[in-house]
Amino acid sequence: MLIGTANKGRYVLDYPLTQWAFVCVVAGAVVGLLLNIPMMTQDQGYLPAHVAAAGLTRADPAAVGRPLAAVVHHGTALVAALLYGAVVAGLSSVLPTAVSLNGVPLLPHIIGVAGVTAFIYYFFARIAMPRFGGSVRDDADEIIRQWALTAFIFGTALALFVPVLVTWL
């Protein structure tokens, strides 16, 4: 059943927190892999991963190798999905959960996806790019615009994939 009622009193969600965390990790991994497509097809699409890796290594983004940028990109997707999971679990204890998508409470799900999407965009645009942009700072506006699209795709894919993924539990 796509829309249902959450089990009352069993868990905050319809699933134990360990299972919920597993769902979020798998969703983050799959969505992170899917994001390779828009990132690689945009002119400056993969540069945010190089900038993030530059922040971790204190190197210039141009000096960051593709393998390290890919690891940072996929690690960020995992962390963002876990952050989403924590937001949904936390909000599920204070917001109405009567309407759900396969046991994922609808209102916390929407707020979690929107909040995490806005956070990853804001963190990159306002913190990572200005501090660690180095030699690619001249292209910052274009890189940030393309990152906005990538963040939106991440949020949309996560919003669609999590309720589907929980049906396989």
Score class of each variant (00 low, 15 high):
Ile111Ser: 06
Pro163Ile: 08
Leu107Arg: 12
Thr150Phe: 07
His50Phe: 09
Ile111Asp: 01
Asp139Phe: 10
Asp139Gln: 15
Ala59Ile: 03
Val71Glu: 08
Tyr121Trp: 14
Leu35Ile: 03
Leu56Ile: 07
Val104Asn: 00
Ser100Ala: 13
Ala86Ile: 12
Leu47Gln: 10
Pro61Lys: 02
Ile143Gly: 04
Leu107Gln: 08
Ala54Asn: 02
Ala151Trp: 02
Ala151Ile: 03
Leu165Val: 07
Thr97Ile: 10
Val113His: 00
Gly75Asp: 06
Asp138His: 13
Ile144Cys: 01
Ala98Cys: 09
Thr156Phe: 13
Pro38Leu: 10
Phe152Ser: 14
Gly103Trp: 04
Leu82Met: 10
Tyr15Lys: 06
Leu13Gly: 03
Pro16Met: 06
Pro163Glu: 08
Leu95Phe: 12
Ala80His: 08
Ile144Phe: 01
Val31Cys: 00
Asp141Trp: 11
Leu165Gln: 07
Arg10Asp: 13
Gly112Phe: 04
Cys24Trp: 02
Ala6Glu: 09
Pro108Ile: 01
Arg126Glu: 13
Gly75Phe: 05
Asp43Gln: 15
Ile127Gly: 08
Asp138Lys: 13
Arg10Lys: 15
Gly90Phe: 07
Ala21Asn: 11
Leu160Ile: 13
Ile110Val: 15
Cys24Arg: 00
Val23Ser: 09
Ile143Asp: 02
Ala86Asp: 02
Pro38Ala: 10
Val23Lys: 01
Pro130Ala: 03
Phe124Gln: 05
Ala49Leu: 03
Gly112Cys: 09
Gly155Phe: 00
